[in-house]
Design a protein around this nucleic acid. Sequence first.
DNA 1: AATAGGCCCAACCGCTCTAGT
DNA 2: TACTAGAGCGGTTGGGCCTAT
Length: 337
Amino acid sequence: MGRSPCCNGEAGVKKGPWTPEEDKLLVDYIQEKGHGSWRRLPKLAGLNRCGKSCRLRWTNYLRPDIKRGRFTDDEEKLIIHLHSLLGNKWSSIATKLPGRTDNEIKNYWNTHLRKKLLGMGIDPVTHRPRTDLSLLAGLPGLLAAASNFGGSGVATAAWDINALKLQVDAAKFQLLQGLVRALTTAAGPAPAPGMDNLMALLALSNGGLHGGADQNMLQQCQWNEMNNLPALTSSAPTSGMHNISGMLDGFSAGDGLSSTELGDHDGASGSNVTIYPMVADDQECKNNGGGGMSCEQTPASSPFDGLESLNLMDDLNTDGGWKDLLEQISWLNSSEL
DNA sequence: AATAGGCCCAACCGCTCTAGT
DNA sequence: TACTAGAGCGGTTGGGCCTAT
């Protein structure tokens, strides 16, 4: 194996926070003579530190070209974009952000950006919609609330989609609808491949759910391109929701949306409805930079496989519809995917 | 006002990579 | 080619600070 770390075996070497005096010794020495061999620097500079500690202190804190202060929006976008391309290659990412250190970027990612992406339903590792089930937390309650609406319950043929829309706010309703379809498609005796599609829907729904969804963040999320999903542009979340909510409107109105938007459907009887994935807007792709990745329009079949030919009304206008759905959610929540 | 819990970030640890011999 | 020293990288930690109770 490799040799032992440089600081091991150097008894009496100081560790921990640097004092201003130590900083001055280090800065003065490097500015006068350069760092040369980091191993020998501490002794030459009169510091009781190991060379590695000196190097880190200099590169992460004392270097004169280090930029301090909050990360700008542009920097944030760039970090997310680069991370989608490079992963945790912090030093590589840092080379694209002048004045920022790998350590600083790494910390910022772990404390801010990672959580931000998670909150948007995007896996910060893969930059794809999350495939864990934490997003489902609270949904049984939502579903239960929805199922209580109308007194006699919704597990009847009297499902009133418009009334429910009044009861549950529109965004939650849209989220619910995505879940309904995905769960009835994906749930089964074993985790189904349709879960990715569920999460794709959730990501879109989440954007709508939070109203102020960070569109810029979504622009930066390259999960779509990296995984042959349709490009997600700044308009995609909204448009995606339009697509879903439009589908629902189609149910209640029985018309108004072309078959190319929603697929052939029959609002009165509750028949098949097809979700067609949103496709990229070329101009927006250009505006978003693209980072050298393709921004082509994607065939409308790839990302929502398994979500096509929706049978929402068939799924729900049955006595067992809600019961089954809740059982499926219960199973999903208790499963490890 | 006290304190517990969470957050943030500088610094450390352990490993890999690279260059020199 | 094999070995070693030094540098660099990414993951993790610990302590100070902030906030909620």
